[in-house]
Simulated scan of single mutants.
Amino acid sequence: MDAVLYICHGSRVKKGCDQAIEFIERSKVKVDVPIQEVCFLELANPTIEQGFKKCVEQGATRIAIVPVLLLTAGHAKVDIPEEIHKVYQHYPHVKVAYGTPFGVDDQIVDILLERIKETEVPIQKDAMVLLVGRGSSDPEVKNDFREIAKRLAYKGGFQHVDTCYLAATTPKLLDGLKQASESGYSQVFVLPYLLFTGILMNEIRTELKRWNKADQEFILANYLGYHNALSNILQDRVNSLLNSKGNEYDVYRYS
C-alpha cells in the first residue's frame, strides 16, 4: 500500500509548526494516496521516526518521502537521509522513494510578486528588491537563489534584485541592507524567502526599523509562506515519485 511522508523543517515557535501542519492538510486532498503523514526534521514532533512508523503501522509497503523545504541544501542532502536510514533498517520490507524540495519554480516567483503587491505600496520605477534567504554553506543553494532573483527581476520588471542571507553564508542581512542603503534606489522591498513565521522573521522585522531614510524607503513584505501554489508544486513532487519506473519505486540507496 502506498504512503506519503511529508517532512517539514520544524520550529521553536509553535505557530510555525501549526502553519506547516495546516498546509499539509490542505495539500493532502490533491494527492490520491490512502496514507499520508506529516513529521518534522527537528524542534517539533512527530519526528521522522514517528512519522515513518505511523505509515508502516497503517499498512504502508511503499513510502514516498517528500522534504517540504524551499531549496536543496544540507537538510535535504544529508540530515533527512541520515534519519531515514536509521529508521529504514528496522523496516527492510518497505520500499522508499525520496523526493526533492520545491527548488527553482516560476510559481514561486509569482508568489514573491504577490507578496510585494500585498504591501499596497505603489512601486516606483527605481524600486529594488532585497531577497532574504535562510542561508546555507551549500553552493547549490546560492546558485538557485540567484536564479530565483534573476527570474523575479525579469517577471516583476525590477531594475535590480539583490540577495542576502540570515546565516551560514554571505552576504549577511546587514550587508545586504547596507548595500541597498548605498544603492541610490528610492524604494527597497525586503522580501523574506521563508516558509514560516518565527525567530528569523522577527530578526528581519527588528533590524529593518533603523534603515528608513527621508529619501529612501525600506518596505518589509510578508514571508513566502505556505501559499496554495506550493500545494501544486508539492503535488507534482509526490506524483513524480509515485510514477517513477511506472508503478514501482526505486529503493532509496543510502550511503
Rank of each mutant, 00 (worst) to 15 (best):
I7T: 11
H9T: 00
S11A: 01
R12E: 00
R12P: 04
V13P: 05
V13I: 11
K15S: 00
G16V: 02
Q19A: 02
E25I: 02
S27N: 09
P34C: 12
E37N: 15
V38M: 13
L41D: 10
N45Y: 01
I48M: 13
I48G: 06
I48K: 10
K54V: 04
E57V: 03
E57K: 13
G59M: 15
I65L: 13
I65E: 12
V66I: 15
P67C: 04
V68G: 01
V68T: 00
L69V: 04
L70H: 08
L70P: 13
A73W: 00
K77H: 09
D79A: 10
D79T: 08
H85R: 11
H90G: 04
F102V: 11
F102K: 06
Q107K: 15
R115M: 04
I116V: 10
E118W: 13
K125R: 12
V132W: 13
V132P: 09
G133N: 10
D138E: 11
D138T: 04
V141S: 09
N143W: 06
D144E: 11
A149S: 09
L152I: 03
G156A: 12
F158I: 07
H160V: 03
T163Q: 05
T163F: 06
T163A: 02
Y165E: 07
L166Y: 11
P171V: 01
K172L: 14
K172W: 13
L174D: 15
D175Q: 15
Q179G: 03
A180H: 14
S181R: 11
G184A: 04
Y185K: 11
V190P: 02
L191A: 03
P192E: 15
Y193N: 04
T206G: 05
E207G: 01
A214K: 15
L220H: 06
G225Y: 01
Y226N: 03
Y226C: 08
N228D: 15
L230D: 07
I233H: 01
Q235G: 03
V238L: 04
S244H: 13
D250R: 07
V251T: 07
Y252E: 11
R253C: 05
